[in-house]
């Protein structure tokens, strides 16, 4: 029954009550019907997960879980694939705030125009963009990835853990870390939500990667 056994063992453990907690869980878990149900559902999801293989991120266990998000109609159908996959632009070139702020941020329109005042100016989507720029109006992008109001999630700390403070990690491969929660955006045009981003999803990853477990680390 103990699903925790299936999770990869953590590398370092300096958390005082680890053993106690685990035995406690083992004791309490059978009492909970929804828990069993949820794990059955989650494991079902694992089996069904498409066999996309991500490049290796050292010292990290990618979180498990899938979600089938609805397609979101954006004002301009932004092709992530062209940018991130074909042209190999680093995620953080545009989502530049990710490494220093809780939010990754949508790039300012001026950044788009930095390239697209020269590149591909004849394409219809770029013409759309130029229209916005000429009106001095940023496009009204729709939010795809969101967490509830009471959750404090910070990109900065996650990037620090998995990218910048991660020995052996190549910053060039940052997309693989982003994919933990955002999926393979470089295979999409506009981003779709493909990870559940529920507390269980966060929690399993925190367990696998030795993240903090204090409620107030993530809840506000």
């Amino acid at each position: 029954m103990s699903n925790i056994q299936q999770l990869p063992s953590r590398q370092v453990s300096n958390r005082g009550m680890e053993g106690g907690r685990r035995s406690l869980c083992r004791f309490l878990m059978p009492l909970s019907f929804p828990w069993v149900l949820l794990w059955v559902l989650a494991l079902g999801g694992l089996v069904l997960m498409p066999g996309a293989v991500l490049a290796e991120v050292p010292n990290a266990v990618p979180p498990e879980g899938t979600y089938e998000g609805e397609h979101v109609e954006q004002p301009i159908e932004f092709p992530h694939d062209t940018h991130a996959d074909v042209n190999k632009i680093n995620c953080m070139y545009c989502h530049t705030y990710a490494r220093r702020s809780p939010v990754a941020g949508i790039p300012p329109t001026s950044k788009c125009m930095g390239c697209h005042s020269i590149i591909a100016t004849d394409k219809p989507r770029i013409k759309q963009l130029t229209e916005y720029w000429d009106k001095r109006q940023p496009p009204p992008w729709k939010k795809v990835h969101d967490v509830p109001d009471f959750v404090h999630f910070t990109h900065e700390k996650h990037l620090k853990r998995f990218v910048f403070d991660n020995e052996g990690m190549d910053v060039e491969n940052v997309a693989e870390v982003c994919a933990f929660c955002h999926g393979e955006v470089k295979k999409m045009t506009v981003a779709n939500k493909v990870k559940p981003l529920t507390m269980g999803f966060c929690r399993r990853c925190h367990e696998a990667n030795d993240g903090p477990f204090d409620c107030w680390k993530c809840h506000k």
Partner: peptide, 27 residues
Amino acid sequence: GATLAGCDLPTTVTLEEGKEEVVSYLM
């Protein structure tokens, strides 16, 4: 059962995709 948080249930306050706008800076 307080330990078992039902963590995988999305809350009613979870925002659905595409319902909110994010407006970036122009410059």
